[in-house]
Design a protein around this nucleic acid. Structure first.
Length: 457
RNA sequence: GUGGCCAUAGUUCAGUUGGUUAGAAUAUCGGUUUGUGGUACCGAGGGUCGUGGGUUCGAGCCCCAUUGGCCACCCCA
């Protein structure tokens, strides 16, 4: 049998893990600086917890876990004798009650409701875990990937939104990636749908507008028409999607256009506050932009929405995204609990850093000292010295096979990029003067174990 | 869910209009050197050419199917 792993999943080598941990550590450090604390939730959730939260497309991409035991019998019991295997869609809900989590936000909402009596609000949590999507893999898209989420729930304040923008800026400044943070507000999109008289079609309209930079104005109009949006509504939409200008000009333009929409004006007010406050505080390296064509597919967003793209390299997909959701917890029985959060896509950030060569040269050297011996007697002599070195906090190891040739042991050190080697043979054992070799310079010296520890500490 | 490209050693790839025993580089292991790595030289192992079928005297090469990979659309991190 040929060894293989499922489509869209990957193994990570030690070198890759060192790089990945660099990203995780950087993000974690910034999260903590902003007062977020970690939680973890299971890899799987009850299917009902996840279904219906991500829109029609999203629901299709949830990995369902088949029930253990005789699921055919179970399905028969609940569906009756006459059920038809051909309609797998019908039986799937009868043979699966668990699913792999699709994102971290919905399980977080479930967590908040389930643990509401242990939580002090506003609750700020971060979470770095894998999620799974049954998407078809391609560049920057995996079926198993890590999200790094920071969310605050139980606070309506726009200060949270402002802080998240700063947090994004901090993370990418530390990682040396120049980014563009696109900001919009679902309320503005609602306002637009309202004033063009197609309130019901808001999802269709936002999805179409979102594609503007890819398919152009004509493409958007065509898609709207095909989806039953009236011609007069499309006409009213034109000035909006073709408008160019600075954030300030966009805001003024929107104020005029959405003057009759209460929700639209609310959205403008929120966006204006976020931009003004962020501007007055200043950002390190990130650029911001109001993008009224930014929609985002996840159904649960109701207020501000964010999307972050790299400004350098060929990687154009978003590497971070988020927004405000007013009622994710309502469905689990805890209404009026607004939250806002963002999610960093660690795997895509990895791809960006790799392409731009932005990983630091020597991220965390592993072993610092290797004991090379010539036989069992030497090995026995070295074991206590090895323990002594470890106790002193020096990452060290001994070549485990006592009889191995020196060339082999040295090669091992070289391959693992171990900077120092201690060579111990009969001479060394006689007087305790060990041979310490610096693998970078090739220099050797006779020296005691205590001096070695002192030097490498 | 729709479309395009690809599949030969652990890895990256050669392989002539279809013709004998499928090659190289690199990695691995061994040796030159049983107290010295990163260099050099020599040698070894490693492939039912993704899988199944077809055409042919003969298929790694042509045809069909299937699986897997990459990429684009959709959607998204």
């Amino acid at each position: 049998m040929k060894p293989s792993i499922p489509k869209g999943t990957r193994d990570f080598s030690p070198t890759e893990m060192v790089k990945r941990n660099y990203i995780f550590d950087t993000i974690k450090q910034v999260f903590q600086r902003y007062g977020y604390l970690p939680i973890e939730t299971p890899a799987m959730e009850n299917l009902q917890t996840l279904m219906g939260k991500y829109g029609e497309e999203g629901d299709k991409l949830i990995f369902k876990i088949i029930d253990s035991g005789d699921f055919i019998k179970n399905a028969k019991d609940s569906l009756g004798e006459g059920f038809n295997f051909a309609s797998s869609g019908v039986i799937s809900s009868h043979i699966s009650e668990k699913a792999l989590k699709y994102d971290l936000t919905v399980p977080f909402a479930r967590y908040v409701v389930q643990h509401q009596h242990e939580i002090t609000f506003p609750f700020k949590r971060y979470q770095i875990q894998p999620v799974w999507r049954a998407d078809r893999p391609q560049k920057g898209r995996y079926r198993e990937f890590y999200q790094c989420d920071a969310d605050v729930i139980g606070s309506n304040s726009l200060v949270n939104e402002v802080e998240l923008v700063q947090l994004i800026d901090d993370v990418f400044t530390k990682l040396n990636v120049p980014v563009l943070i696109k900001i919009n507000n679902r309320k503005i999109l609602s306002g637009i749908a309202e004033i063009i008289g197609e309130k019901e079609k808001i999802v269709t309209i936002t999805v179409a507008i979102d594609k503007l930079d890819k398919i152009g104005v004509d493409g958007v109009n065509k898609e709207l028409q095909e989806n039953g949006v009236s011609d007069s509504a499309i006409e009213k939409l034109q000035p909006l999607i073709s408008f160019q200008g600075s954030t300030l000009e966009k805001l003024n333009f929107l104020k005029q256009l959405l003057g009759n929409s209460e929700i639209g004006l609310k959205g403008i007010e929120e966006v204006e506050y976020i931009f003004k406050t962020v501007d007055s505080l200043g950002l390190n390296t990130a650029k911001t932009e109001l993008d009224i064509t930014l929609a985002r597919g996840l159904n649960y967003y109701t207020g501000a929405i964010f999307e972050v793209k790299s400004n350098a390299g060929t990687f154009t997909s978003s590497i971070c995204g988020g927004g405000r959701y007013d009622d994710l917890t309502g469905i689990f029985g805890l209404p009026n609990m607004s939250g806002v959060g963002i999610s960093f896509g660690a795997d895509r950030i990895y791809d960006v850093l790799n392409e731009l060569n932005l990983f630091p040269e020597s991220v965390a050297a592993s072993t610092k000292l290797l004991f090379v011996t010539f036989g069992e007697a030497e090995q026995n002599y070295c074991l206590p010295l090895l323990a002594q070195a470890r106790k002193a906090g020096i990452n060290s190891e001994i070549y485990p096979d006592a009889g191995a040739k020196m060339k082999k042991q040295m090669g091992y050190a070289d391959d693992k990029k171990i900077p120092f080697v201690v060579i111990v043979g009969s001479d060394e054992m006689l007087n305790g003067m060990l041979t310490l070799k610096n693998m970078t310079t090739g220099e050797q010296a006779k020296i005691t174990i205590d001096s070695i520890i002192e030097e490498l500490k």
